[in-house]
Design a protein around this nucleic acid. Sequence first.
DNA 1: GAATACTCTATTAAACCGATAGGAATTAAA
DNA 2: TTTAATTCCTATCGGTTTAATAGAGTATTC
Lengths: 137, 137
Amino acid sequence: MLSKKTKYGLKALTYLASQSKREPVQISEIARHENISQKFLESILLTLRKTGFLGSKKGKGGGYYLIKEPGEILLTTVIRVLEGPIAMVPCVSLNFYEKCDDCPDENKCAVHKLMLQVRDSVLEVYRNNTLADLISE
Amino acid sequence: MLSKKTKYGLKALTYLASQSKREPVQISEIARHENISQKFLESILLTLRKTGFLGSKKGKGGGYYLIKEPGEILLTTVIRVLEGPIAMVPCVSLNFYEKCDDCPDENKCAVHKLMLQVRDSVLEVYRNNTLADLISE
DNA sequence: GAATACTCTATTAAACCGATAGGAATTAAA
DNA sequence: TTTAATTCCTATCGGTTTAATAGAGTATTC
């Protein structure tokens, strides 16, 4: 299941991407427009800023804005920041690899074999999509 | 993340599938061979029996066994039983569809658009694999 | 009838998730 | 210079899920 954090984060990003101008948009506006709990959204936008997707401006007239072009923001990176590993098991994760406790030999493991395929096919989807692709015309 | 339930279930199924004879295999043997908590595995095998993948025999010499050929067992069905929906959001699920509370229009939703693609690509992987494909030669 | 092994229900501990609270820091405008 | 608006940060909470365990119950074989 996709966490609400990721879901809300993606929605907020696309909302920002669909703005005609790159000017600060307030949390409250995004929350209202996307039906998201404002306080929860706060924490999400904060991590998106700390991880380099958003810029922010404090104080009156402040808000959040994209600091890259939507076409340059790959979904792989967004998902990894918000949701964590793309792989469904750590033993097939590219960025968060961990060996299984059980499982003496990965190459003979059915789960490993299957989840490798899943990882690759999901990864391809994410790699083929930027934020720009998600904005509906 | 894949739950341990699904992981263990898949391992148990492939272990049973790799048996030369379709004779009952005891829970304890599977648990030992795959490094799984026996009690936990018990409940998993029980649901696999109730959902038509396994047969069982009680008493001495009893155990669990496959009741279909490994080549006939699609991963889609196994995953749905053990893990639940394949889709990452209910609004793109084929078998467990639910509308989102937020989100006035699915067709304009970025998350929906993306997760549709993910669902399709994952589904293709599961559809192209049977239990037989997961057994290492 | 005794041993074996599946069946079922209940409980637990830990982890995670979504949401909330409250105040500190910063900025713009009056 | 004061006030209002807004992000920033930390802490916490209730609920749910997960993985595992315990133990009694039931069926079968030898």
